[in-house]
């Protein structure tokens, strides 16, 4: 009886620990249509943590981000997001899962040009936290504008707001600071990390921007 109880407790603890791990990958390989295979190192990121993926151009940073977002399928290997293996999910299920659990911030901010900023932000989430998050990111005055009327920095903040509004468990950011000066680069990176921590989301930043290395302890360099 004592042995069984101990095993049960151990299993529960392992599950709890696994639950805290929002992202982990094992033996990830992507077969590029041109015939090249890209091998990625195993990675793990817990809720509230930041993992920086760096590397030069063409090493597969964006491919990795797309694999983690379920936009691409790996040839082999495992990707677990919030405890769910996503590598073998069907497209419809993956779309739904992504909408619920994964927020993506792109280097180039994409918006629906015909909608206002507010409408863009509410495309996949409800109104409940819009006020709070848009105030934190300082874009509440811009909500009625069309995306084309915003500056690049404002668009970036709106893009972050949209990702956060989804209340994701995994936040993926692709070169979020590429076009920012040093001051704004640090401000945006800190903002992202703070918001991810507040939401208990794992933040994975894919970048070639070496300025971020000094901010985050955990980083993997792709080569």
């Amino acid at each position: 009886m004592g042995i069984f109880a101990t095993r049960k407790w151990l299993n529960a603890t392992v599950l709890l620990l696994k639950k805290r791990t929002m992202l982990y990958t094992r033996n990830l390989v992507y077969a590029h249509p041109n015939g090249h295979a890209l091998l990625f190192p195993d990675m793990e990121c817990a809720a509230g943590d930041v993992l920086l993926i760096t590397g030069g151009s063409g090493v597969g940073k964006t491919t990795l981000l797309h694999l983690l977002a379920g936009l691409l399928k790996p040839a082999i290997g495992e990707i677990h997001v919030a405890g769910t293996a996503i590598q073998s999910m069907k497209p419809a299920a993956m779309d739904a899962f992504r909408g619920k659990h994964i927020g993506i911030i792109y280097q180039q901010s994409h918006f629906i040009a015909s909608l206002s900023v507010r409408e863009n932000l509410l495309l996949v989430s409800k109104n409940t936290r819009l006020q709070e998050i848009s105030e934190k990111l300082g874009i509440q005055q811009l909500l009625h504008k069309k995306p084309a009327q915003l500056s690049q920095g404002e668009q970036q903040r709106a893009s972050i707001t949209r990702a956060l509004l989804q209340s994701p468990q995994l936040l993926l950011a692709d070169e979020p600071t590429a076009s920012l000066d040093d001051e704004n680069c640090i401000a945006v990176a800190k903002l992202l990390a703070a918001q991810a921590a507040e939401q208990r989301a794992a933040l994975l930043i894919v970048t070639h921007d070496n300025r971020l290395k000094q901010l985050f302890a955990h980083h993997i360099t792709l080569s």
């Binding site: 977002a69 936009l71 497209p91 419809a92 779309d95 739904a96 899962f97 992504r98 909408g99 619920k100 993506i104 792109y106 994409h110 918006f111 629906i112 040009a113 495309l123 996949v124 949209r162 989804q166």
Partner: peptide, 17 residues
């Protein structure tokens, strides 16, 4: 012209349908 917008919607969880 709006292929990026459509791709964005997919990446935010919109299904193909």
């Amino acid at each position: 012209e709006r292929r990026y917008e459509l791709a964005l919607l997919r990446s935010m969880g919109w299904g193909r349908g």
